[in-house]
């Protein structure tokens, strides 16, 4: 599972959950596949995601070093090479292979196996 996917995921479908976002990420195994940096892609993706959530997810998998701070608006053109590389790494190269996602409101755990997050629940858990 890419951290970009994590950025969209929510457990709001659970009973008594209002936003269910962001899901707390824990990992047991990750995989990194190198790819060429595409700065235009980074620019486009940054306006479409919640960067603070991406930053926290990267932190939870030990990949936050060199990432720009989430406290200010991240302007791709002002990032140094190391920051760009790390942003590219967490958005494009990194896959969570085994881990879990936790609902921030109920603590319900969703497993990630073989890179697939499983957010299917029993009927009696749905609102």
């Amino acid at each position: 599972m890419k951290l970009l996917t994590h950025n969209f995921l929510s457990s709001r479908f659970l009973k008594n959950v209002t936003t269910g976002y962001p899901l707390k990420l824990t990992i047991e195994e990750k995989n990194v596949v190198e790819a060429e940096i595409d700065v235009n892609f980074l620019k486009n993706v940054m306006v479409k995601i919640d960067y603070a959530v991406l930053y926290e997810a990267a932190k939870s998998v030990g990949e936050d070093e060199n990432l720009p701070s989430p406290n200010a608006i991240v302007d791709i053109d002002s990032l140094n090479e190391q920051q760009l590389k790390q942003l590219h790494r967490v958005l494009v190269c990194l896959d969570v292979v085994i881990g879990s996602l936790e609902c921030p409101e109920t603590g319900r755990i969703f497993p990630i196996r073989d890179g697939i997050p499983n957010l299917l629940v029993n009927e009696d858990e749905v609102s």
Partner: peptide, 16 residues
């Protein structure tokens, strides 16, 4: 069955 796919239900899409 593989990565890039999320397991979920079309009636309760697991996305914000």
């Amino acid at each position: 069955i593989r990565d890039s796919i999320v397991t979920g239900d079309a009636h309760d899409l697991p996305f914000k």
